[in-house]
Amino acid sequence: MTINPYLPLEAEVIERIQETPTIVTLRLRLTDPDARHRFYCSPGQFNMLYLYGVGEVPISIKSGPQSFLDQTLLLDHTIRAVGRVTRALVELQPGARLGVRGPYGRGWPLKEAQGKDVHVITGGLGCAPAVSMVHELVKQRGRFGRISVVQGVKHADDLIWREQYEHWAKQPDTQVLLAADQPDATWRWHQGMVTGLLDQLTLNPDRSIAMLCGPEPMMRASAERLIELGLEPEQIWLSMERNMQCAIGHCGHCQFGGAFVCKDGPVFNYPQVRELLGVRGF
């Protein structure tokens, strides 16, 4: 965390990976070596990325150093070009400079997940904030029970990191389920919505934890289905998204009822957001 909470650190684009026509991963390195060694994050947190003269946007950290022992020191951010800033950000080429502020927010409850079966259910680019968490689960495999990774996309083309899912599927006690609403000829998984896959989960409600990230209707439907399948609302966690400009709970844009998504979230326990999730206008 920088001392002035608003001041970005300079970073350099080390690599640009075109994931789909509209999704790009930028691999960044902070240019100040001291800052680089001080920066570590936990899965589910986000950074504010600042494009010179254009503005700042919150982007989840797809992967980054998680402790001072970590030697990667690179920050991957996967960005979909949808708005004024992100459309320009995805055009950055290796060598370009930008600003980074963070990490912010409360990440995934990995402590609570220890010793439990972990079900990671994502939709669309909601997989990005979850990837670093799944990596962590796989890295510390012995600490967790069964792992299931469920990802749904609209078009088959939207599935990024296909090799990653195939790799995870080969891990012991790990279930990978994929769904596409509009599959193509090569699609060999489920056709339909991600919620249609939940019945296929090997679910032991008394030792499970679910982590959800994706469009809100998908998260809400999934959470409610999991409750029907026997999970308590407290066993479900989800990552929310709202307009964020300051990232420290001051600017007011990310308020969701009484919660500031930027600092009280983005990962919430389901009972904290259940009242308003799906209510239009919140």
């Binding site: 002035n4 608003y6 001041l7 600003g99």
Partner: peptide, 16 residues
Amino acid sequence: LWCAQEQPDGSLKFHP
């Protein structure tokens, strides 16, 4: 809140 300056080599400097 702060200002950013673009240096001739393309690097950025931030000042509170």
